[in-house]
Computed example of a mutant assay.
Amino acid sequence: MGSLLGSGSFGSVFLGTRLADGALVTIKCMPRDRIQHWGELPNSASAPLEMVLLDKVSSGCAGVIQLLEWVELPNSFLLVLEHPEQCQDLSGVLA
């Protein structure tokens, strides 16, 4: 995990490097106590709704950041997401 890209009510987002090939990724850390909505993954596991929805659309939906991997820790979930080359912070667009 690298530098903090941003944080908000639901967690923090970091720049990261995938060890397998050195590709840049984005890692979202979601503390379990901040998760308000839960869903169910195809294997019937309970997971944050954001992760369940990303899992559903991460196979070929253009314009949607792809969920590459996720990790469940005792107190949080880590979502490993693609990091597009051309990206802009949404707060710079919304004013």
Rank of each mutant, 00 (worst) to 15 (best):
G2E: 10
G2Q: 09
L4E: 13
L5G: 05
G6Y: 09
S7F: 13
S7P: 00
G8D: 04
S9D: 08
F10S: 10
G11Y: 11
S12A: 15
S12R: 04
S12G: 05
V13N: 10
G16F: 01
T17H: 03
R18G: 13
R18F: 09
L19S: 10
A20E: 13
A20D: 08
A23F: 08
A23C: 09
L24Y: 07
L24S: 08
T26Y: 04
T26F: 01
C29H: 03
C29I: 07
M30C: 11
R34L: 15
R34T: 14
I35Y: 15
H37K: 12
H37P: 02
H37Q: 13
G39C: 04
G39W: 14
E40V: 15
E40T: 14
P42V: 10
N43P: 05
A47P: 04
A47N: 01
P48L: 06
L49E: 10
L49G: 00
L49Q: 12
M51I: 01
M51N: 00
L54A: 00
K56S: 09
K56D: 00
K56V: 01
V57F: 14
S58R: 13
S59C: 08
G60K: 12
C61F: 12
G63H: 02
G63L: 09
G63D: 13
G63E: 07
V64R: 03
V64A: 12
Q66R: 15
E69L: 02
W70S: 06
W70Q: 06
P74D: 13
P74R: 09
P74S: 12
N75R: 06
N75P: 02
F77S: 05
L79N: 09
L79H: 02
H83K: 01
P84H: 04
P84F: 01
Q86R: 10
Q86D: 15
Q88N: 01
D89R: 11
L90I: 15
G92E: 08
G92A: 08
V93N: 07
A95K: 14
A95Y: 08
